[in-house]
């Protein structure tokens, strides 16, 4: 039982991070039908940003805010320079472009920062453990608690934004039918920018949380996480906000439980497992677990 509880906590942790990124994917895809492969790399950008700011002496909260700003800036530049010109260009072009942007970001950071793994050491507070019971063998670090709290809070906040604010409603309108939305006076560009801001900010926070928990980061880290988070978003039902969040958490839990319960040799299959799940889910529910068939709900 302890083993299960311990694994579950680890799974929820990873899942929370996937959820944050998956939401970003989902929001952008809902409006633009664009899979932004560079989204995962924004996580990496945020991490380097925070690292540099901390090294320059900023305290943790300001470094986090700073890195969020940096990441959002990157996200907006990408939107403006790479995606907006291709707005009507068809699927292939946008797909290749987003891939190219991802490769470019990685290579840029590779050249500037070298492939060397870095880490920023967080204050000891985060490593302190709370004992949850089970004869003392189930422990949870403060970092994990922070991850849960922050993720939960952000999801709630974004959910509110989408449901209640004007921009949020405009976003949902565009996701459902951008032509009609434009006819109703919605400024598509503004909505897209807003979507990228929200998505990038979420990715940034995810990046900081991720590196805080798992310590190590390098320029290539974002891509893989991004792909898995994308798989999570698809599993949950891309275009559906709740689906993306649920998909993210679900995938994280499944991935860790799978790795914990299978015999040693199967460790190699951990990443592959994620995609097996993706393929299986799509076979039976082509729109994801929570996605609606045609029209989308945020």
């Amino acid at each position: 039982m302890d083993f299960f509880a311990g694994s579950l906590i680890s799974g929820l942790q990873l899942g929370s991070i996937y959820a944050l990124i998956a939401i970003g994917y989902s929001i952008v895809y809902g409006i633009l039908r664009l899979i932004n492969f560079a989204h995962g790399d924004l996580l990496m950008v945020a991490t380097y940003g925070a690292w540099i700011l901390i090294a320059r002496g900023l305290s943790l909260p300001f470094a986090v805010i700073g890195s969020v700003l940096i990441t959002v800036a990157f996200g907006l530049v990408i939107e403006r320079a790479a995606y907006r010109p291709l707005r009507d260009a068809g699927e292939e072009a946008t797909l290749i472009t987003s891939l190219a942007v991802s490769i470019f970001l990685q290579n840029l950071f590779l050249m500037v920062f070298t492939p060397k793994n870095r880490a920023f050491a967080l204050p000891g507070f985060f490593s302190e453990k709370l004992v949850l019971g089970g004869a003392g063998s189930i422990t949870i670090t403060n970092m994990s608690i922070v991850i849960f709290v922050v993720t939960g809070g952000l999801i709630a906040a974004v959910s509110l934004i989408i449901k209640k604010t004007r921009l949020g409603i405009a976003m949902r309108a565009c996701a459902e039918n951008s032509t009609a939305a434009k006819l109703m006076g919605v400024n598509l560009n503004a909505v897209v920018v807003f979507a990228f801001v929200v998505g990038s900010a979420l990715a940034a926070v995810a990046g900081v949380l991720y590196s805080g928990q798992y310590v190590s980061f390098n320029p290539s880290m974002g891509f893989m996480i991004g792909i898995k988070a994308f798989a999570a978003a698809v599993i949950g039902g891309i275009g559906s906000f709740a689906g993306a969040a649920a998909g993210g958490v679900l995938l994280g839990v499944l991935e860790i439980l799978f790795a914990c319960y299978l015999p040693e040799g199967a460790g190699v299959y951990q990443t592959a497992f994620v995609f097996l799940v993706l393929i299986v889910v799509l076979l039976f529910k082509p729109n994801g677990l929570f996605g609606a068939a045609e029209g989308r709900r945020s």
Partner: peptide, 11 residues
């Protein structure tokens, strides 16, 4: 573990 940028050793 399979090292694809692997960082989560909880299993």
């Amino acid at each position: 573990y399979d090292d694809n940028g692997y960082t989560d050793f909880s299993p």
